[in-house]
Write a protein that binds this DNA or RNA. Structure first.
Length: 736
DNA sequence: CCCGTCGTTATTTTT
DNA sequence: TAACGACGGG
């Protein structure tokens, strides 16, 4: 057996060496699926003489794609000739090559959600930004299902006929810009492949092996892309490509974005003779952590079902801590991190997980106070910052002068005396004449405006022309090629953007100029040519995470949303905010609740050595302090699989036997015995209130001041909260 | 055109 | 609570 194959277990080996029929690998969390894919790529090249050029492997994130690429070429260098990309960058690559058959120019850029909303407000007049944003979401979803504005099935997304009209107007306007949105990157290649036999045949000849990672999160459009690329489905080829997908139905967490678990459940029916291989050996987590994960996920009905075995053996019992409020929760986490740090555990072994980005705040302020270094993953959204979007709009307009959104964004920013009225005039009359090159139109028609306006337009056009010159200039002999950062610096200086944002830095203490510099730095890897610029924009649009290389090696705690942890692992994990209404969110039932449960499963299975979960009795939300109950997921965990700290809410205890709190340090010595008031008004107790009448106690928690707070549901359907301490005279307990 | 104030509104979101 | 958009006055 070859070296690189000898490290595999028998199922992994089977998956790597399987051939002859479609392959579905059901890979549990931490079961080494990336190793399987990368080894399979190497194996095909090394042992099976497959041309690396004919292998296509797609994933969802740039990060995962990069990792796959790096690990594959480590085993087999020739893998660098394979296409290892994200779904969307594959779509962009495809469209730049074949888009012309449906009139998509090869110099398109990709509009993000924000640009979509702006374009919708311009293509359908009278919509508020909020309405437009609602439609934008629906249009994205429709594209995830491959439904165009005239598709009969569109009603399944939203049967409101206005939606159809808005979608149609948006499409028309979008096409006139020559740009595409994210949905188009998948939907349009599908359209081309299904309508154009020649191109489909060419691609089928090119890609003989197609692999998909994180398959559980693929949407219908991506499924269709896989189908048509590989020669399956309605255009079944006599010689289809070899298809291998890897996924875990238990980790599907993007249904709200059009991901269809059905793609995994129905794989067999579209790809005949599918071989299914399960990878159930977990090499990541200690057995106690997997026990908790299994307790939770087994409550889902909609799953193929599997049981992970812990190859790393036993470790510590996961900890569940009940805490009074989110400030205590932050302190609890900070205590854990500080105490272990004193014992030599680095910060970067810790990850704090939460459901919503807003929850990071209390951890950030506590960590800041205690000087615990941390990094917030995902919420930064570097490319959504105003100053960055401004710069990118200049770049986008330089490659594509039909880009209406970019034109609107920068024509008068910073203010150069081309106001809203002038802008609308230029855009509308240009559009009426069927001209979409707004810069050119403005240049040719500026005389129709007042002298002052006309001068402003002229100087704007001149500036744009100079930028254009910078990237198209022929290289003089012996001159070193310029880098793209030259163009960005030029834009910063000459457009006035730098001054404009510098002023903001002074006032609000932001770092906008620095951010602009950062963008310029990252552009220094690209040539100062149209091709270089397009590649740079592709890179940005298809990978919204800016990596700051110099910060990579600093020892920091990771603060991250549960969604963002997909594919990651940490030595020690704290899942915070395990409360009903927060996680799972209040409105989740049925299938949606199952998705929340999978999200919880994903969170738990990120932990390698230690897992902590925290649940607060009260939480500040929207400026209000609400009393909250423990998450339903906590009750699903077998009590023997947890060590419980803090005082246990009675609503939890009713499902679990008392375990005893033993957490005396860190100022967390809350009473772990029942106090008489709490016992007297425990959940389920029938009461009579002088003012409100008969009712029943539905909730009982401790306040921040450690006082018992009960919620009573009265017969007239009202709910009220009381401090029983002060209700001795008006609140009567009714004995059965 | 800039700035302040008031009122509204809060998921998750690989690309 | 906080953050952001809408609107009106200077």
């Amino acid at each position: 057996m070859r070296d690189f194959l000898s490290v595999l277990n028998s199922e992994q080996y089977d998956a790597v060496t399987h051939e002859g029929s479609p392959l579905l690998i059901l890979a549990g969390a931490g079961s080494g699926k990336t190793r399987v894919i990368t080894t399979k790529i190497a194996y095909l090249i090394k042992e099976k003489n497959v041309d690396p050029y004919s292998i296509l492997a797609v994933t969802f994130t740039k990060k995962a794609a990069n990792e796959m690429y790096e690990r594959a070429i480590q085993i087999e260098e020739k893998a660098k000739y394979s296409q290892i990309k994200t779904f969307h960058s594959f779509g962009a690559w495809f469209l730049r090559m074949y888009g012309d058959v449906i009139d998509i120019p090869s110099n398109f850029t990709v509009y993000d959600d924000d640009d979509m909303v702006t374009l919708i407000t311009k293509s359908t007049v009278g919509l508020t930004r909020q309405q437009a944003s609602h439609y934008a979401h629906k249009i994205s979803l429709a594209k995830d299902y491959c439904y165009g504005p005239d598709d009969l099935m569109l009603d399944e997304i939203d049967s409101d006929q206005n939606f159809r009209l808005v979608y149609r107007a948006y499409e028309k306007r979008l096409r006139s810009t020559g740009n595409v949105d994210f949905g188009d990157l998948i939907m349009l290649p599908v359209k081309i492949l299904t309508e154009n036999n020649l191109i489909r045949q060419r691609l089928l000849q090119r890609f003989r092996v197609i692999m998909v990672d994180e398959y559980q999160d693929s949407n219908v459009a991506q499924f269709k892309l896989l189908e048509s690329l590989s020669g399956y489905g309605s255009n079944l080829s006599e010689n289809p490509a070899y298809v291998c997908v890897v996924g875990d139905d238990d980790q599907s967490i993007y249904k709200f974005r059009g991901a269809e678990v059905k793609n995994i459940l129905n794989f067999k029916s579209i790809f005949p003779n599918t071989k299914i291989i399960r990878l159930e050996k977990n090499y990541r987590s200690k057995s106690e952590i997997l026990a908790v994960a299994d307790d939770i996920v087994k409550n889902n009905n909609d799953r193929l079902g599997k049981k992970l075995s812990a190859e790393r053996g036993n470790g510590k019992l996961p900890v569940l801590a009940f805490l009074p409020n989110q400030d205590e929760e932050a302190k609890f986490c900070a205590d854990l991190i500080e105490q272990t740090h004193e014992m030599g555990i680095p910060y970067n072994e810790w990850a704090i997980l939460y459901r919503t980005n807003a929850q990071s705040l209390s951890f950030e302020s506590e960590f800041l106070k205690r000087r615990i270094p941390y990094t917030v993953v995902g919420s930064l959204k570097f490319y959504e910052r105003e100053e960055i979007k401004d710069l990118l709009a200049f770049l986008a307009l330089i490659v594509n002068s039909k880009d209406e959104i970019a034109f609107r964004r920068i024509i008068n920013k910073p203010t150069r005396g081309i106001g809203a009225t002038t802008q609308e005039k230029i855009i509308n009359s240009a559009r009426n004449e069927g001209i979409y090159d707004f810069v050119k139109y403005a240049k040719e028609h500026c005389e129709s405006f007042s002298k002052k306006t006309s001068e402003s337009i002229k100087s704007f056009v001149l500036m744009m022309e100079n930028f254009y010159k910078t990237i198209t200039e022929e290289l003089k002999p012996l001159e070193t090629p310029k880098k793209l950062s030259v163009l960005i610096d030029e834009i910063c200086e000459n457009s006035g953007l730098k001054e404009y944002h510098a002023a903001d830095d002074e006032i609000s203490g932001t770092q906008r100029v620095l951010n602009m510099q950062e963008l310029s730095n990252s552009a220094s890897l690209y040539d100062c040519t149209t091709e270089g610029l397009l590649a740079f924009l592709d890179h940005i649009e298809l990978d919204r995470t800016l990596e700051k290389p110099e910060e990579e090696n600093i020892d920091k705690v990771t603060l991250i949303t549960l969604h963002n942890t997909k594919g990651l692992e940490f030595k020690r994990v704290v899942i915070t905010g395990m409360e009903l209404g927060i996680f799972p969110r209040q409105d989740k039932t049925g299938e949606d609740l199952e998705e929340e449960r999978r999200l919880c499963y994903v969170g738990v299975t990120r932990a390698q050595n230690e897992l902590y979960m925290t649940s607060c009795a009260s939480r500040r939300m929207y400026g209000r302090t609400e009393f909250v109950l423990p998450s339903t997921f906590l009750k699903e965990i077998n009590k023997d699989n947890l060590r419980i700290l803090g005082h246990i809410p009675s609503s939890f205890k009713s499902n679990t036997e008392f375990h005893g709190g033993d957490y005396g340090k860190n100022g967390l010595s809350h009473p772990t015995f029942d106090d008489p008031i709490k016992e007297k008004y425990k959940v389920g107790t029938n009461v009579f209130h002088d003012e409100y009448g008969s009712g029943v106690v539905v909730n009982s928690v401790y306040s921040e001041e450690n006082e018992v707070v009960i919620t009573i549901q009265f017969e007239n359907n009202s709910r009220k909260k009381f401090l029983p301490k002060y209700q001795e005279n008006s609140l009567l307990v009714i004995k059965e």
